[in-house]
Amino acid sequence: MKRVLLSWSSGKDSAWALHALRRRPDVELVGLLTTFNEAAGRVAMHAVRRALVEAQAEAAGLPLTAVMLPQPCTNEAYERRMKDAIAAARSEGVTHMAFGDLFLEDIRAYRVRLLDGSGVGPLFPIWTSREETPALAAAMLAAGIEAVLTCVDSRQLDPGFVGRPFDAALLADLPEGVDPCGERGEFHTFCRRCPAFSTEIAVTPGEVVVRDGFHFADLVPA
């Protein structure tokens, strides 16, 4: 039996990984791990409030490990704090860490390297190919995943998409070349409903903030 800690971004891919892991008989999920900007108290890149991530963890019935990152955060500082968190997890019996990555080989290689020598093995439960992400996005929706776009990279996607629900209409509106799961960083999401949640996390898109070409919708509890 693998005792698994799931890297949790608060988005739909993390939620789909949670759903996939819950269906595996060889896995015992022991918790979620999220990195937060310690100054803002929000998820890095997604800019989701910590309280909403805590609500997701409660809905999933899992404890949340918060890794606080300085602002600005160098890669060295990120790796040091992550390795400390991984070592602590290993001391508590965690054998594997799972990630919701889909097809970016360089990201996968980085995750593997970060865990190398820690005694914690990597898992990629929803790994697929770039050709299969349209079908994957459709499967998420069919299974009941509901999410909201919290961040849009305006260099890859029109900022008008921020705050929109991740649904069939959005997928139909995405321009050619944009991955339907946003795997190349075109957009990031917050998952409000998931088969692995006991309840929906009700949110409303609020103020939109622009930083360095990224448009963030501030999600507030509804």
Rank of each mutant, 00 (worst) to 15 (best):
T133C: 05
E28G: 04
G206A: 09
I107W: 12
F161M: 08
E28T: 13
R111C: 00
A59Y: 03
H46R: 04
G11F: 05
V210F: 03
A66L: 11
R50G: 04
P195L: 00
A44P: 01
R211M: 07
G31D: 00
A87I: 08
L114G: 10
V120Q: 05
S154A: 15
L149C: 04
S14A: 15
R155G: 09
F190I: 02
V112E: 15
Q56G: 07
E79T: 14
H188W: 05
A77K: 13
F197R: 00
F190D: 00
F103P: 02
L136Q: 14
T189F: 00
D116V: 10
M1E: 08
L21G: 02
V48M: 10
P72S: 02
L6R: 01
T34D: 10
V112S: 05
G206Q: 13
G121T: 14
K12V: 00
E146Y: 02
A15T: 10
V112R: 13
A60Q: 05
A222G: 15
G177R: 14
G177P: 11
R130P: 08
A57W: 08
W16I: 01
V30R: 14
G100Q: 09
M140D: 01
E105S: 13
L29T: 01
K2L: 07
A85P: 04
D179I: 14
F36N: 06
S14G: 15
L64E: 05
A217Y: 04
L5I: 07
D116C: 11
M45Q: 13
A88R: 15
R192H: 14
F214K: 14
V53H: 03
P195D: 00
G206K: 09
R24S: 03
L123H: 03
P134G: 02
A77T: 12
L219I: 08
I145L: 12
E186H: 08
I107D: 11
F124C: 08
D116A: 15
H46A: 04
P159E: 09
G206M: 12
G185W: 09
W127M: 02
P125F: 03
P195K: 02
E28L: 07
L157H: 05
A168M: 03
D116I: 01
E54A: 13
A89G: 07
S10Y: 10
E58C: 04
P221Y: 11
V112M: 05
V43A: 06
G213A: 10
H188Q: 10
L115A: 06
V162Q: 01
P72N: 03
A15Y: 11
P125M: 11
A89M: 01
T133Y: 08
L171T: 08
N75E: 15
R111Q: 00
S129A: 13
V210C: 12
A135E: 15
P72Y: 08
E54T: 03
A168D: 12
P180E: 09
A66H: 03
L174S: 03
E92S: 15
V43T: 14
A138C: 06
T204I: 14
A139W: 07
A77R: 13
